[in-house]
Design a protein around this nucleic acid. Structure first.
Lengths: 154, 154
DNA sequence: TTGCTCCTCACGTCACGTGAGGTGGC
DNA sequence: TTGCTCCTCACGTCACGTGAGGTGGC
């Protein structure tokens, strides 16, 4: 059989912790830890107590990893950012439910400001990496000049 | 006095651990820890046992931090990278001392390869950050569209 | 029954943070 | 003597890694 049963979700769009971990490239322990610190509660459990992760759970983990590895936030900071995003999404859903009240406007402004701030940090990191890249290119060029010298005399 | 004595090096080009830490934006504990794990031994000590850091020491710490925070290497990996760089620098110094032997050529090639590999990782990280930035821009634009909607009706 | 994946403690590890108690030069 | 910075243990913390011992469905 080319199609191993283990590679498929147990229930449509629900993954066991092992499948989820492999799909995401993180450890099973990490997923349990994110739950322990209240960052991500899996959408369900089997009758036997096994965690079940939905696609939305996987998306959330990808977001956590992005903020962790690309921008260097710790899990506490990530919790704050995700809480902001969750509230923003909530506002978007409730958009037509309530009338245009001040609370919602304030939330949108705060959300926008948070994203602009995040964008600034990303920009800064990209700039620092580009500077680093230029330094590395310099070093490679220097090695190349040394190698040319060797080649000339050989 | 505008020029506090504490802001100046004790000895020309030699800094106490507190001065070095402030200059670098790292903790005193971190500097001691780098020494503990063999990443950086300060160039000197006072007669009383106080660590003294030279400019070359500071440069090395900056390099450690770059590899740590920008590229996410752990201290063990950084030790390996710095060892490579130290050996490369050594080859450059000894360049005219010995004749063109195979060992040196191999070292240059290995060094070049390591830098090219590093460059690849930097490129990948920049690309991922740029993708992330586009996503954030998307989110900002979405908030803006919602705010426009609010403004129209107000 | 055997294998596999899952479960919950719980201790270990890496890169420091944070006092505890003491020394040394203005 | 008081203040400041430095010193060496040594335990605490964050984000997991890694077994220990046990359960549950093909």
């Amino acid at each position: 059989m080319t199609n191993a049963v283990n590679d498929k979700p147990l229930v449509p769009d629900l993954y066991g912790i092992g499948q989820a971990a492999q799909e995401l490239g993180v450890s099973v322990r990490a997923l349990r830890y994110y739950q322990e610190v209240g960052l991500l509660t899996p959408s369900g459990r089997t009758s036997g107590g096994n965690r079940l992760y939905a696609d939305s759970d996987l998306a959330r983990v990808r977001r956590i990893r992005e903020l962790q590895t690309l921008l260097g936030f710790n899990l506490d900071e990530i919790r704050t950012i995700l809480a902001h995003e969750d509230r923003l999404a909530q506002v978007r859903i409730e958009y037509r439910a309530s009338s245009d009240d001040e609370d919602r406007v304030r939330l949108l402004n705060a959300g926008r400001e948070a994203y602009v701030h995040l964008r600034g940090e990303i920009d800064e990191k990209i700039q620092r990496l580009e500077t680093f890249r230029r330094e590395i290119d310099e070093r490679i060029a220097r090695v190349d000049r040394l190698q040319e010298g060797s080649a000339e005399r050989s």
